[in-house]
């Protein structure tokens, strides 16, 4: 056996083995880019959702971009954001569509560009969406109506403050509400208004209602901004407690209104979970796992009685620090 060849072989082996040991420390958990496009860049609901998403992003090593138009009515703004996002080609897109139909086109386009899309908060009219993560909005609407009718004792006149006309969640809540109210012939819906998720607009409309319908018994609001806008006017007018208000979501101002009696009950979603689960499932989707078509994050009706129950404390005030 030629000795030189042998030595060479040995050297090769040693080299090979040392290389492979170094090579074994590769990171298999690479960073993923996920874009989160919601309806509005402010508001308690959205900031809590964002926090949930960010906690998950940190946990799952995701580079999260939070994008939102300045207000919920800015549908074109949101379409532009989705288009921009398609340009960047993230690994997944999480979309809370402001308009069921108008966002459908751009959603299809994103799907066509092989970007997996998960709908959160409110659905979009595209069959290419992988999953919906959020509140069961129809049920939320029903629960609001149920509580209102209970408070009114089965008869009365109510108004509904919805937020964006073509938003899927707005429509579903309204539908659920109307379907429930329809069972009670003595309950009359005087008006359904859309405040475009603007507190000011909600307040203005409420003032109009108070003037127009002096016999108004209750107002149901269908999102956080609407709730604040309505609550402020009711309190201002000194009608707190006389006029029943069922509000939506739990920003601190609404919590105060609940405690001072302006608002009788809150239909509370789980925005933190919406955000967290959206990112978590997006990661699972990217990793090629199958996820459920619909993931319901639950709702709760909170009133003075149960607001300090330990489990509700945790829901209402998720942030300990």
């Amino acid at each position: 056996m030629p000795r030189k060849m042998l030595l060479l072989l040995m050297a090769c082996c040693l080299l090979l083995s040392s290389c492979s040991v170094d090579g074994g420390l590769l990171m298999d958990n690479q960073e993923r880019n996920i874009d989160l496009i919601v309806k509005m860049d402010h508001g308690d609901y959205w900031s809590t959702l964002r926090m949930g998403a960010e906690v998950a992003a940190k946990e799952f090593n995701v580079n999260l971009r939070f994008l939102a138009p300045p207000n919920e009515g800015d549908i074109q703004g949101q379409i532009n954001l989705v288009n921009d996002s398609i340009q960047k080609h993230p690994d997944a897109l999480l979309l809370a569509a402001s308009d069921y139909m108008k966002l459908a086109q751009v959603t299809d386009r994103a799907a066509y560009n092989n970007i997996p899309i998960i709908s959160i908060d409110s659905e979009v009219g595209s069959a290419r969406v992988k999953s919906y993560i959020g509140t069961n909005n129809y049920e939320a609407g029903q629960r609001a109506a149920e509580r209102m009718i209970h408070l009114l004792g089965g008869s009365g006149k109510i108004a509904v403050m919805n937020f964006v006309q073509e938003a899927r969640n707005a429509n579903q809540r309204e539908e659920g509400l109307l379907d429930y109210v329809a069972r009670y012939p003595n309950v009359q819906i005087l008006d359904i208004a859309y405040c475009q998720s603007s507190r000011e607009m909600a307040s203005a409309i409420t003032r109009e209602w108070l003037d127009t319908y002096p016999d108004l018994d209750g107002i149901i609001t269908l999102n956080a901004e609407a709730s604040i806008g309505v609550g402020r006017v009711v309190k201002e007018a000194g009608r707190g407690g006389l006029l029943k208000v069922i509000a939506f979501d739990s920003p601190q101002e609404t919590m105060e209104m609940l405690q001072d009696g302006t608002v009788q009950a809150l239909v509370v979603q789980n925005p933190f979970n919406n955000g967290y689960l959206a990112v978590q499932y997006a990661v699972e989707l990217i990793e090629g796992r199958k996820i459920a078509d619909r993931i319901d994050t639950g709702i709760k009706v909170i009133d003075l009685e149960n607001m300090l129950w330990p489990e509700n404390q945790k829901l209402l005030f998720p942030f300990v620090r």
């Binding site: 926090m51 949930g52 906690v55 933190f272 979970n273 967290y276 689960l277 945790k314 829901l315 300990v320």
Partner: peptide, 10 residues
């Protein structure tokens, strides 16, 4: 350390 997630039932 993940109190929020525990509170949220996640």
């Amino acid at each position: 350390p993940q109190q929020q997630l525990i509170h949220a039932g996640l």
